Computed example of a mutant assay.
Amino acid sequence: MLRVIARDDAAMLAVGLAAMGAALSAVDAAIVRQLDGGLHPMMIAFTRALFGALAVLPMVVMRPSVLKSVYPLRQHMARAALKLVTLVAFFAAFARGPLTDVTAIAFTSPIFVVIGASVMLGERLGGMKILAVAIGFCGAFFVAGPTGAGLTLAMGFALVGAVLQAVIQLMLKSMSSGDRTATLVIWNLLLTVPLAFVLALPFLTMPTAGQMGLLALQGVLGAGCMALMTHAFSLADASIVAPVDFLRLPLVAVLGYVLFGELAKPSVWIGGVLICLAALIASRASRRARPAE
C-alpha cells in the first residue's frame, strides 16, 4: 500500500513538473515573437545557448564527473548541431507565423519518430502506429491546409523543426542507454555555444537592454524547461508525462491572443487536437511494443 501511495505521489509531482515545463515553453515562444524583426533567429539561438550553458555551469563545477560520457565527442557534436538547426527553424517559424499554428505543427514530431524508428531502427509498424501517422497527417493538413494558415514559410520552418526534433529523439533513444540524462543535456548546451557563435557571426548585432533581458530570460527558461521535463520523466512513465506537454497549445493560444492579438482559427484547433491524439496513440503503441522488464 505504501509503495502504491509513493508511486501515485511521484506521478502527481511528475505531472506538476511537466505542466511547469509546458508553461515555460509557451513563454519561450512568446519571447521569440516579441523579438521578431529585432534579432536574427541565429542570434537568438546563440544567446539562448549561452545563457542556458551559464545556468548549468555551476553543476559542472560542483560535479565535474557529470561530463563523463561513453560516447565520442563527435557524436555529441553532431547532436548539438542538429539541435541548433532545430532551434533556428522553430525560432524562424515563431517569428513569422501564428504561435498556435506553429505549436500545433511542432507536435507532429512524435509522428516522425514513429516513421523514423521504422525506417532507421527497423521497428515494426503495427496497426496502432499506422493509425497514429494517418491521424497526425490529417491534423497537420487542417493546420497548414487551405482552411488553416496555409503552406507558408513559417509552416515550412515548423515542419523542418519537427522532423529534425524527431531525428534528435531517435539519437537520444540510443545514447540514453549509455549516458545519464544530465550528461546528455549538459554536453548539448556546452557544445551548442561555440557552434552557434560561429554561425551567428554574420548576424551579430548589439541587443538593446530590453532585448538582452528577454534573451537572458529565454536562456534560463530553456535550461529550466529541460531540467523540469527530465526530472518529470524520471519520476513517472512517459505515457503519464508526455500528454501534459500538450498544455502548450492552449497556453500559447492565450499568450498569442493577449500579447499579439492572434486568434486561432477553428481548423487549427481541430488539427491540433488530431495531432495531439495521434501523438498519444503513437506513444501508447510504442510503450506496448516494448518487451516486459
Rank of each mutant, 00 (worst) to 15 (best):
G161N: 02
D8Q: 11
L121C: 01
T208G: 03
V163S: 00
Q165A: 13
V254M: 03
C138A: 10
G150S: 02
M1K: 08
G16L: 10
Y257N: 15
L191M: 11
E293Y: 12
D9C: 14
V220F: 05
L82I: 07
L13P: 00
V254N: 03
S176M: 08
A154Y: 00
F91A: 06
L151N: 04
A78Q: 06
V198W: 05
A158T: 06
T103S: 14
G52V: 12
L159E: 10
Q165E: 13
R96S: 05
V167I: 12
A285Y: 06
T100P: 00
W187H: 10
V119P: 03
T192H: 10
A158L: 02
F246A: 02
A55N: 08
M62H: 10
A264C: 01
Q165M: 08
L54H: 10
V27Q: 08
L35Q: 03
A19I: 07
Y257R: 13
F203M: 13
A289H: 01
G156E: 00
A26Y: 09
L50E: 02
L50H: 03
V88F: 05
M175A: 07
M171G: 03
G37W: 00
D9S: 12
Q211N: 05
I111R: 00
L159D: 03
G116V: 01
H231E: 15
G256I: 11
G261F: 11
P266R: 01
Y257V: 15
L259E: 09
A53E: 06
A26R: 08
F137S: 03
G161H: 00
T147D: 13
R180C: 10
R290T: 13
A29E: 11
